[in-house]
């Protein structure tokens, strides 16, 4: 879980720079349930927002899709080593709600990766 939390912190950093772009890309709210902890990623409003306390936080929007997985699966997803589709087929990833939205996860996670500087 520790890794996921750090990755989400990285994602939060990316939101501050490219939030609007990611919102345009994703247009939805995703709830990640990773080893019992909830991360709510709002890529529907404004320039995006991350709720580290999940859906219980005040003012948090309703999730369009809920993704349940383990920490190491999320690490693999985030680094692009594992595709969400594949994880889903293998049963490592459970999806509730708007499945189509989960297919857009890869580009979002990719955009959240650190960029090399010129």
């Amino acid at each position: 879980m520790a890794a996921s939390k750090e990755l989400f912190k990285g994602l939060e950093q990316a939101l501050s720079k490219e939030g609007e772009k990611l919102v345009k890309l994703f247009k939805g709210v995703a709830l990640f349930k990773i080893d019992g902890q909830d991360f709510l990623l709002d890529l529907k409003n404004g320039s995006g927002k991350l709720y580290f306390d999940g859906s219980s936080g005040s003012g948090a929007p309703k999730a369009d899709v809920t993704l349940t997985m383990s920490d190491d699966v999320f690490v693999k997803l985030a680094s692009g080593k594992l595709q969400p589709q594949m994880a889903f087929i293998q049963g490592k990833l459970k999806i509730q709600g708007n499945i189509a939205l989960s297919m857009k996860l890869t580009p979002v996670l990719k955009a959240a990766q650190p960029k090399a500087s010129l």
């Binding site: 520790a2 890794a3 996921s4 939390k5 750090e6 990755l7 912190k9 990285g10 690490v75 650190p114």
Partner: peptide, 20 residues
């Protein structure tokens, strides 16, 4: 500054939690 964050991610993802 950003490097500290990247380092943290890298450590967390390799499970090197004892150095975190």
């Amino acid at each position: 500054e950003p490097l500290w964050g990247y380092l943290k991610i890298a450590m967390a993802c390799t499970g090197a939690l004892e150095h975190l």
